[in-house]
Every structure is written in C-alpha cells, then in structure tokens.
Simulated scan of single mutants.
Amino acid sequence: MSGVQDQLEIKFRLTDGSDIGPKSFPAATSVATLKESILAQWPKEKVSGPMTVKDVKLISAGKILENNRTVGECRSPLCDIPGGVTTMHVVVQPPALEKGIGIVQDIAQTI
C-alpha cells in the first residue's frame, strides 16, 4: 500500500490552458527533475517554450516550488487527494527578459 502512496499523479497546466500529462512520479522526485520532464515533453507546436530548467517556474497550491525540494516535500495536505491528480501550473520566464534587465542596469550605470 505504501508503494502506491509514494507515487503522485501530476499534470502540468500551461499558461494557455493546455496540459502535459498526467504522469506518475515517485514522491522522492526533485522539482528540478519535474522541470526536466516538462522540457522533454513540451509541445513542439508551441512557440517560445522554455530552453532550460531555469526558464521554468512550477506553482502548486499557490507556492513556487524550489528545485532542490522533492515532490513529497511540496505536497499540500489540503489539495492532494489520495489517488487523485495534482495539477501544477507552469510559468515560463523567457531568458530575453533577464537580458533586458541587464541592459537597463548597464544604461543606468553610465548615466
């Protein structure tokens, strides 16, 4: 019985309302590994997908999940129903945004 509870069914909701999954993950799976799975399964027809794990933010139960945490540590007792599917929201932070901030900082330093 504990083997079943150590597995979580997770689907990833993209910003356009489409989903990746659901897929079963062990509770010991790291958030970084979930993000790698998202990168591997990202729909090819979607424009401006994430390039690296750093481009992806996962949100579950209103909290941004940290890469070094495990799925089991991030479980919410209020939202997770045994045998149910957990939905995590995926936000892509484009790398161009970070470059734009660097340019603004460079300009500010020269003024």
Rank of each mutant, 00 (worst) to 15 (best):
A61I: 05
N67S: 14
D80V: 15
S24C: 13
V91Q: 10
Q5M: 12
K57G: 03
S24K: 15
Q109S: 10
S30V: 12
G102F: 03
T110W: 05
K23D: 04
M1W: 04
M51G: 07
Q5P: 03
L97V: 14
V71N: 01
G3W: 06
Q105P: 00
R75S: 06
H89I: 15
P22D: 08
H89K: 15
Q93I: 15
I103E: 01
I103C: 01
I64N: 03
W42E: 02
K63C: 10
L34R: 01
Q93R: 14
E98R: 14
G84S: 14
S18Q: 10
T70I: 12
T87V: 15
G62A: 06
Q93D: 09
A27E: 04
S37E: 06
V53N: 02
M51D: 03
I10G: 00
S76G: 14
A61H: 08
P95T: 12
A61V: 09
T52N: 09
G17Y: 08
G72Q: 07
T52I: 08
N68Q: 10
A27N: 05
I81H: 02
V56H: 00
P94C: 12
Q5G: 12
S37D: 06
T52D: 07
L39G: 01
P82V: 15
L78I: 14
S48L: 10
E73W: 02
A32W: 00
M88P: 04
G83L: 12
I111E: 01
I81R: 07
A96F: 03
D80R: 10
N68F: 03
E66M: 11
F25N: 02
A96H: 07
E36H: 12
A28K: 14
L8W: 02
V4R: 06
K46H: 07
T86I: 15
G100F: 02
F25S: 02
S76L: 11
G102H: 05
P77G: 12
S30G: 07
L65I: 05
P77S: 15
V104M: 13
K44T: 04
S37Y: 07
I64Q: 07
I101Q: 03
A40V: 06
A28L: 11
D16K: 09
S60H: 09
E9L: 11
P43A: 09
V47A: 07
Q7W: 04
A27F: 05
V90R: 08
G100D: 02
G83W: 02
R13S: 10
D80Y: 12
I101M: 10
E36G: 11
D6M: 13
G62Q: 10
A40Q: 09
Q7S: 11
L65E: 01
S18E: 06
D19N: 09
T52P: 01
I103Q: 03
V91D: 05
G83N: 08
L34Y: 01
T87R: 09
Q41I: 08
T87K: 11
T15W: 06
V47S: 03
A108Q: 02
A108L: 05
S30D: 03
C79K: 14
A28P: 00
E9P: 01
K35L: 13
V91A: 11
